[in-house]
Design a protein around this nucleic acid. Structure first.
Lengths: 231, 231
DNA sequence: ACCTGAACACCGTTCAAGT
DNA sequence: ACCTGAACACCGTTCAAGT
């Protein structure tokens, strides 16, 4: 069942420019894994996790609902592919050449977080999904950079997971609060109504504090201080 | 629509012992929010998120499928209630009285993580759910303890979110890897097959490193060091 | 107040068949 | 190799009706 995959993947090298006139008319280009994934991401952006239905996806692609199943095993695979496609990382060359390991780590992790926040569904999807190639590439880069920074091999996995955990948690939390303003308002209202039970967090307006970026950066700095002291 | 809730909640004080003979026979006790939530948790433990169906839940409760809808608005609410019910925290008295703020924070957060790992579905559920009373209680306790530890009000929200983010991320990651051993093995195998692309993490056996508890504790210590220096 | 069965709308996927 | 419509199994929920 996994064997099918690699063959399909290699179709991405097809040239589609040949018979394509300047302004695309009614007739859609042929189905392809690429088009399916791209459209799935659009649909997820627009309608969220629950909004992705196979029929709706096929509609957007101008194909019959069942045509998808030639390119894809099932809906789960659409999720996997959409998630990983959103997490591609292009390392900026000037950073890769500098010796600033800390800047490099921070840049990659902030980019990671930004990518996921651009597609809020990705945060809630990630916990249940496999590690795709783009995710693995980021872990690989993180590992190499930390190694260059002097983190010992024995501490490496704990270091990587600490950072990963932190970014995951921050992103998931932020994304789930960000989903709708009504939800936030409702939550804060409920909190105020219950303020006798939760006086401290009610007072600090915890749920309304929106300096997420600052809080993220602060915690990340603490972690990096601890992981590679004396740098 | 939210008004209905509080009235239903108060039914938990019903005594059910009256007509209950020693060994429970065929006839189930009457439906109640409590029984529904308890059984939902059992079902989630046994079958995972996708295994919770309203009909199956009703079956386990010995009732018709539609009877649930008198106690509950919809399936979403079942998820919300099951999640929060699993996150109750009973603060151990000897810790509350000690002046050891750090021990108290670590205890609560490790208990949080342990509770979620006992019910792996909870980790993947949390990102999309509202903050229930038990979650808010933990945030309240965290806030009070950090305040006692000398964290300034201005830094409080960043401190709380840093810790929250870290625990969330660690738990979600761990739980999603823990779901099935086959998945882990498959992932590592795929990784080995692709080892040319990911030499560093392949070498460090990142995906097989199973000292999750140690890694969790280490990162947490770094964060606490940073959040309340000089303690 | 509490429970129920029948029925509806919807959705993922199988299948047998087209080109 | 690639696409399709009809059909099936399943599931959340509405409704009108029971006690």
């Amino acid at each position: 069942m996994a064997a099918k995959r690699s063959g399909v993947q290699s179709k991405r090298s097809q040239r589609t420019s040949a018979s394509q006139s300047a302004h695309e008319p009614r007739s859609e280009p042929p189905l392809s894994l690429e088009r399916i994934v791209t459209t799935a991401v659009e649909l997820l952006d627009a309608q969220g996790v629950d909004g992705l239905k196979m029929r709706r996806l096929a509609d957007r692609l101008g194909s019959g609902a069942m045509s998808l199943y030639w390119h894809v095993d099932n809906k789960e695979e659409v999720f996997d592919l959409a998630l990983d496609s959103v997490l591609e990382y292009r390392e900026p060359p000037q950073i890769a050449e500098s010796r600033d390991w800390r800047g490099e780590v921070v840049h990659m992790l902030e980019d990671w977080r930004a990518s996921m926040l651009r597609h809020p569904w990705s945060a809630s999807l990630l916990p249940r999904r496999a590690l795709g190639p783009n995710i693995l590439s980021r872990l690989e880069l993180l590992s190499k950079t930390l190694s260059r920074a002097g983190v010992a091999d024995a501490d490496m996995n704990a270091a990587i997971w600490s950072l990963w955990n932190y970014v995951m948690g921050a992103t998931i939390t932020r994304a789930s609060f960000d989903l709708s303003d009504e939800d936030m308002a409702a939550a804060q209202q409920r909190l105020t109504r219950l303020s006798e039970h939760y006086p401290t967090i009610e007072r600090s307006r915890l749920l309304l504090d929106n300096d997420w970026d600052g809080a993220f950066r602060k915690g990340l700095d603490f972690l990096l201080d601890g992981l590679a002291p004396g740098q």
